[in-house]
Design a protein around this nucleic acid. Structure first.
Ligand SMILES: [Mn+2]
Ligand SMILES: [Mn+2]
Ligand SMILES: [Zn+2]
Ligand SMILES: [Zn+2]
Lengths: 141, 141
DNA sequence: GCTAAATTTGCAACAGAGTTGCAAGAATTT
DNA sequence: AAATTCTTGCAACTCTGTTGCAAATTTAGC
């Protein structure tokens, strides 16, 4: 398996020990193009990892800049691979996210940048999150 | 009390019976300019309304177009009064929301419209949510 | 390859957010 | 004021996420 090798290297590059759950969870992210919620991972991982392990693994990946969180209206955090140059403690994912109303897939629109927002006097922006709801490419035909 | 009168009328206009919890919760919203989360209301209401009553009251107000929800990154729904022309089943609040990193107040920027987002081929937008994080007017001096 | 140290995992127990059914209580209608 | 309608509180439950700790696994040194 070529991919397993690549994932191992990704872990080592981030000074993380190579464990079954980390390999499997990253594998899921690489097989998917939409985002994954904790519950999705619990179902799809198969191997019956403990819920807590999954939470901790996801948190570790976020800390290392391997995945990023996506805020959605339904109060369940979703995660997706960082394709930008994110590093430990410094995420760079300034793109728009899309949630499909039909299939409820959550997708990173890597090429759509968050527009600059003109704020009233006295407000200083540090970061903006844009989530667009609508119908995705798959569902619109 | 003049305000109580006004709140009563707001309830009647929406075909809602006038009850202690509804009066009190609306009163809190009118006294506040930031948004309120369920937990805030539970604390500030004083009168010890049941948690379930608060949840149901908030849901009713959202359904009627009296308040709207604000998505934030911390996975706790916040609510604010609708100042736009929202009606039963049809919210019109297309403004930007702001979350202060210092005081964590959540504010509706009624005058800041959500910009149009250009999506890739195949995607259709129906609604976009913009949440800007930063430092608010109060905290920036 | 084996051992010791460092890290990760699973379990149990917990906290918080939100939902549902139902009987009792209040508000509205007549 | 009584009957009807609607709302509330309670209990019980689900789902999401967190923490402490001992056991298991991984890594590093030899
Ligand atoms: Mn993304
Ligand atoms: Mn608002
Ligand atoms: Zn879709
Ligand atoms: Zn502030």
């Amino acid at each position: 398996m070529r991919q397993t090798q690549q994932i191992q290297q990704l872990l080592k590059r981030n000074q993380l020990s190579v464990t079954d759950s980390r390999l499997r969870i990253l594998e899921l992210f690489f097989q998917q193009d939409g985002a994954l919620a904790h519950a999705d991972i619990e179902k799809k991982s198969g191997a019956g990892f403990d819920r807590v392990t999954i939470y901790r693994t996801l948190q570790t990946f976020v800390d290392k800049g391997i995945i990023h969180t996506i805020p959605t209206a339904d109060n369940a955090v979703r995660y997706a691979l960082c394709k930008d140059d994110c590093t430990q403690g410094h995420h760079q994912d300034h793109h728009v996210h899309f949630v499909c109303e039909r299939c409820s897939t959550t997708i990173c629109l890597e090429d759509v940048e968050v527009p600059a927002i003109r704020l009233p006097e006295g407000y200083t922006a540090s970061h903006a999150e844009v989530v667009v709801n609508g119908v995705c490419r798959n569902c619109s035909q």
